[in-house]
């Protein structure tokens, strides 16, 4: 689109002017220049208040943006995203909490029985005592899974809650709500908190890696 002083309606104005001049010329082959000037002034007067090309472009973009927002609001309303916060995420976090509770109870039961075996082993001698102690040691070691899985689940719950907050923010901003409340998004985790939790096996350092790292300080 042309920039500068071109006015919206100039093209229309020119064609109107041409038409009027043609009409005048047809009716009055020897048209009075004053009459032509009057016609030109009249056409120019109709252009008062028109937008510049740049302003028209911005207006068109604003109109388009308005239509996009209206469409997004309608789509968000149709999707019932608030159900995610009201139902899905609370359900998921409750389920995960239940997993922690159930596995904790099971682990406690295992440990209690393992301690009983330890007491029995204390009354034995020889190979049987050794075998029993090795077995209980392995059970104790394996039971630490509960701590690791608990921490992993806590991380997942944290992620779900972050999603919940963002969904709430989107719904309150774009959704067909009353619109007053605006949620502040949770701050990003403090980079220096160092509470990273258990790492997935592919990313984790094992004990030998840690030993090497520690040794590098000596």
């Amino acid at each position: 689109m042309a920039e500068g002083n071109s006015r919206l309606g100039s093209r229309g104005g020119a064609s109107t002017l041409a038409a009027r001049l043609a009409e005048i010329h047809a009716r009055h082959p020897t048209a009075d220049p004053d009459m032509v000037a009057e016609v030109v002034r009249s056409v120019l007067a109709t252009m008062n208040g028109d937008l510049s090309a740049k302003e028209a472009s911005v207006l068109a973009e604003v109109e388009e943006l308005g239509r996009t927002i209206a469409t997004a609001k309608a789509e968000i309303a149709a999707l019932e995203v608030d159900v995610i916060n009201v139902s899905h995420i609370p359900f998921a976090t409750d389920e995960l909490d239940a997993i922690i509770a159930h596995t904790a109870a099971a682990t406690d039961a295992i440990l209690e029985n393992c301690e009983t075996l330890d007491r029995v082993a204390a009354g034995l001698t020889g190979q049987a005592a050794t075998q029993l102690q090795v077995a209980t040691t392995r059970i104790y070691e394996a039971c630490s899974f509960q701590d690791i899985t608990g921490q992993r689940i806590t991380k997942v719950v944290g992620a779900l809650k972050a999603i919940e907050a963002k969904v709430e923010h989107i719904v309150s901003t774009f959704g067909p709500s009353d619109g007053e409340a605006r949620l502040s998004l949770p701050q990003a985790a403090d980079a220096v908190s160092l509470l990273n939790g258990p790492q997935l096996p592919a990313a984790a350092m094992d004990q030998s890696d840690i030993d090497k790292l520690l040794a590098s300080f000596d």
């Binding site: 160092l194 990273n196 939790g197 350092m205 790292l213 300080f217």
Partner: peptide, 13 residues
């Protein structure tokens, strides 16, 4: 700890 990132080990050391 389950914190096994390099930065954790360094901070602890």
């Amino acid at each position: 700890t389950a914190e096994s990132k390099t930065e954790n080990v360094i901070a602890a050391k």
